[in-house]
Design a protein around this nucleic acid. Structure first.
Length: 566
RNA sequence: UGUCCCGUGGUGUAACUGGUUAACACGUCUGACUCUGGAUCAGAAGAGUCUAGGUUCGAGUCCUAGCGGGACAGCCA
C-alpha cells in the first residue's frame, strides 16, 4: 500500500497535536512538518509503539511532510542489531516508508561531543568526580533542594582537559561524568545538574570501540531532533518533566529548536505493555517468544493474523490526548473483523468433529457444490466444495436436549447444511460405555439443494460441515486473552503473572478442514464460516500441512443468549 | 508534602475556541433481513462534563479554592 493510500484510508479526527501543527503552519512558524519515530533498539515493538508510529508517520503523510526513523542508540549495554532489524521490519510492515532517512543517535556522537565542548566553554557544564551514589545522595528529593557538587566550579581549562582524557579512555567507568551546570535547587529534578555523559567501556553495535563516553538520553535526544530539523518532537507523557531540560540545552547551544509535545501512551485491557514485563513472559517461557500470537507485540499481532490496515485504523480510533487511558481490547478486535470481513475468503472448517451419516444418500456419490468465497465481494468468486454421504459437523451444532432458542441440530429436528441440503436428525449413536454421542444418522431432502429453489422448505438454522472423505486433518490454535483480568498490573502486591489466563491457548489437533485449505500458505487469512478469522501460522505450518491461528472469533450472539439463560 | 500534567456516558475521543436539547466510535440492548446466530439496516438505553464558589445574557470551555489520578529523586530511554 502506498503512503498516498494510507492518507486516504480513514478520516482523521482532529486532536491537540494537529491543532498545534495547524497553528504553526498558519502563523508561518513552519512551512512543513517533520517528525520522527525514535525507538531504542533494546527490544521488540508493541501495539503502543504502533500508536506512536502511526502518529508520527501519519502526520507526515497527511501534511505532506517527512518522518525519520531514528534509533536512539545511546546505551550500548542494552542495544543490539537484532532489535534494529526487527524494528525496521515492523515499521515497514505497518506500511510506512522512511525512504533514505534512517538515522541513529550514534551518527551524532561527534557532533554531540562538539556541543558538549561548547557548553563547557560557556561554563555551563562541568566534570564531576562524585560517585554515582554521591550524586544520588546530593540530588535532594522532590521536596528538598539538592546540594552542589564540590567539583562544580572546576575551571573551564580543567574541565576541557578532563573531558578529553575521559573521551580518550583514561578513566574507569563511573569515575567521572559530565554534568550540565543548571540549578541544584530546581523544583524539577531533571534540572539539578543532569548527567550528560557517562563512561562505558563497551562496544557499541554501530560505533564499535570508537567511543567510551556515551551521551545520556536528555543530552542526545533534543540535539538529534535539532540536527534533523524535526519540527514537532512527539513523545509520551513521562517526558513532560524533561521538556524544560530539552529546551535548556537547545537554547544554550543556540541551535534549531524543535518543539517537544507529549501525549498519553496506549494501554490495552487484558494485556500488559511494559517491555520489561513482556521480556519476563518470554524468558519465563510463559509464551512462545516475542512473536507469540498472544503477545501485544507487533510481531505477535502479525503472526496472529492482524493486518497492518486494522492496526492503523485502530491507532486512529484510539484518539490522541494527554489523559491516561485504557483502551478496551474489543476495539482492537473490532478493527480486524472490520478489515477481514471485506477481505477474507470464507471456507468451512470443523473444529470439533462429530460424524454424521446421510442414510438416504448414495454410498459412492460425490457432488461438487458451489460456495461463495465472500458475500461482501462478488469479485472473489466461488469455489466447489465436495459433498458426500459421510460428513463432519461441529459438536457445538448438535444438542441431544436442545436449550431454548437453539436453532441447530437435535433429534428429530432439521437444519440446513450450508451451500447444500436440509437434513433431519433421525438417530443418535452413542458409545455404549461412556454415553458419548459418536455419530448421527440423518436423512437429507434432495429438493432442498441450495440455489435451486425447488423446495419451499425452510430451516431455522444453517450449519457448516465438511465431507469426511475429502476433508483433511489440521491443527488449529485457539487464542484467547493473555490475562483473565482487565488490568493485570493493577493489583497491589500481586505479580501480574498470577493473572495469566490458563486458557489463552487451546490447541485442537484433529480439526477437519475443507480440501481447498490444504495448500494455504503462511500469513494467508480466512474466515472459517460461523467460527472466526484464522491465519496460517508462520512458525508451525509445513508444506501441505498448515497450522491455523485463530485471530478473533466472529461476533457471537448465540453465546450471549446462552450465557444469559444460565 | 515540591514542580509539572490530567479529570466529559462502561471504554476512548470530540464539541466551530464562551453560544441551542454535549457529538462520534467501540461496547451494551431491541427489532428487521439473511442459506454464516456473521455482515448489513433501523432504533434504544446510557454523561449534564470531579466538587464548590465566581465572572458572564450565556461556562465542558475563563478565574479561585478544594478533591482525585499520574509523572519525576538511573551514570536507563
Amino acid at each position: 500500500m502506498s503512503q498516498e493510500e494510507i492518507k486516504n484510508e480513514s478520516k482523521k479526527p482532529t486532536n491537540f497535536i494537529r491543532e498545534i501543527i495547524d497553528e504553526d503552519l498558519k502563523s508561518g512558524k513552519h512551512k512543513t512538518v517533520h517528525t520522527r519515530f525514535p525507538p531504542e533498539p533494546n527490544g521488540y515493538l508493541h501495539i503502543g509503539h504502533a500508536k506512536s508510529i502511526c502518529l508520527n508517520f501519519g502526520l507526515a503523510i497527511d501534511y505532506n511532510g517527512k518522518c525519520n526513523l531514528r534509533f536512539d542508540d545511546t546505551n550500548p549495554t542494552k542495544e543490539e542489531q537484532e532489535y534494529v532489524d526487527s524494528i525496521k521490519e515492523d515499521v515497514r510492515w505497518l506500511g510506512f516508508n522512511w525512504e533514505d532517512r534512517e538515522y541513529y543517535a550514534s551518527d551524532y556522537f561527534e557532533q554531540l561531543y562538539e556541543y558538549a565542548l561548547k557548553l563547557i566553554k560557556k561554563g555551563k557544564a562541568y566534570i564531576d568526580s562524585l560517585t554515582a551514589e554521591q550524586i544520588r545522595e546530593t540530588r535532594g528529593t522532590p521536596t528538598e533542594a539538592g546540594k552542589e557538587s564540590p567539583f562544580r566550579d572546576r575551571s573551564v581549562e580543567e574541565n576541557l582537559d578532563l573531558f578529553e582524557r575521559m573521551k580518550n579512555g583514561e578513566f574507569k567507568e563511573g569515575e567521572l561524568v559530565l554534568r550540565a551546570k543548571i540549578d541544584m535547587a530546581s523544583p524539577n529534578l531533571n534540572m539539578r545538574d543532569p548527567v550528560m555523559y557517562r563512561i562505558l567501556h563497551k562496544a557499541h553495535h554501530r560505533t564499535g570501540n570508537k567511543w567510551c563516553i556515551y551521551p545520556m538520553y536528555d543530552w542526545a535526544h533534543g540535539q538529534s531532533d535539532s540536527i534533523e530539523r524535526i519540527t514537532h518532537s512527539l513523545c509520551t507523557l513521562e517526558f513532560e518533566n524533561h521538556r524544560p531540560l530539552y529546551d535548556w540545552f537547545v537554547q544554550e547551544l543556540e541551535i534549531y529548536p524543535p518543539r517537544q509535545i507529549e501525549f498519553a501512551r496506549l494501554n490495552l485491557s487484558y494485556t500488559i505493555m511494559s517491555k520489561r514485563k513482556l521480556l519476563s513472559l518470554v524468558e519465563g517461557k510463559y509464551v512462545d517468544g516475542w512473536d507469540d500470537p498472544r503477545m501485544p507485540t507487533i510481531s505477535g499481532l502479525r503472526r496472529r493474523g492482524f493486518t497492518p490496515e486494522s492496526i492503523r485504523n485502530f491507532s486512529e480510533r484510539v484518539g490522541m490526548a494527554k489523559r491516561e487511558n485504557t483502551i478496551d481490547v474489543s476495539l482492537l478486535e473490532f478493527s480486524v473483523r472490520e478489515d477481514l470481513n471485506l477481505k477474507a475468503k470464507r471456507v468451512m472448517a470443523v473444529l470439533n468433529p462429530l460424524k454424521i451419516v446421510i442414510t438416504n444418500y448414495p454410498d459412492d456419490q460425490t457432488e461438487d457444490l458451489e460456495a461463495v468465497n465472500n458475500p461482501e465481494d462478488a469479485s472473489m468468486g466461488t469455489r466447489l466444495v465436495p459433498f458426500s454421504k459421510e460428513l463432519f459437523i461441529d459438536k457445538d451444532d448438535f444438542k441431544e436436549v436442545p436449550p431454548p432458542k437453539f436453532h441447530r441440530l437435535s433429534p428429530g429436528k432439521e437444519v440446513r447444511l450450508r451451500y447444500a441440503y436440509i437434513i433431519r436428525c433421525d438417530e443418535v449413536v452413542k458409545n455404549e460405555k461412556s454415553g458419548e454421542v459418536i455419530e448421527l444418522h440423518c436423512t437429507y431432502f434432495p429438493d432442498t439443494k441450495s440455489g435451486t429453489g425447488t423446495s419451499s422448505k425452510k430451516a431455522k438454522g444453517t450449519i457448516h460441515w465438511v465431507s469426511a472423505k475429502h476433508a483433511f486433518d489440521a491443527e488449529v490454535r485457539l487464542y484467547d486473552r493473555l490475562f483473565s483480568v482487565a488490568d493485570p498490573e493493577g493489583e497491589e502486591g500481586k505479580d501480574f503473572t498470577e493473572f495469566l489466563n490458563p486458557n489463552s491457548l487451546e490447541i485442537q489437533r484433529h480439526c477437519k478442514l475443507e480440501p481447498s485449505l490444504k495448500t494455504a500458505k503462511p500469513i494467508e487469512k480466512f474466515q472459517f464460516e460461523r467460527t472466526g478469522y484464522f491465519c496460517v501460522d508462520t512458525k508451525y505450518s509445513k508444506e501441505s500441512s498448515p497450522v491455523f491461528n485463530r485471530i478473533v472469533t466472529l461476533r457471537d450472539s448465540w453465546s450471549k443468549i446462552e450465557q444469559a439463560s444460565k
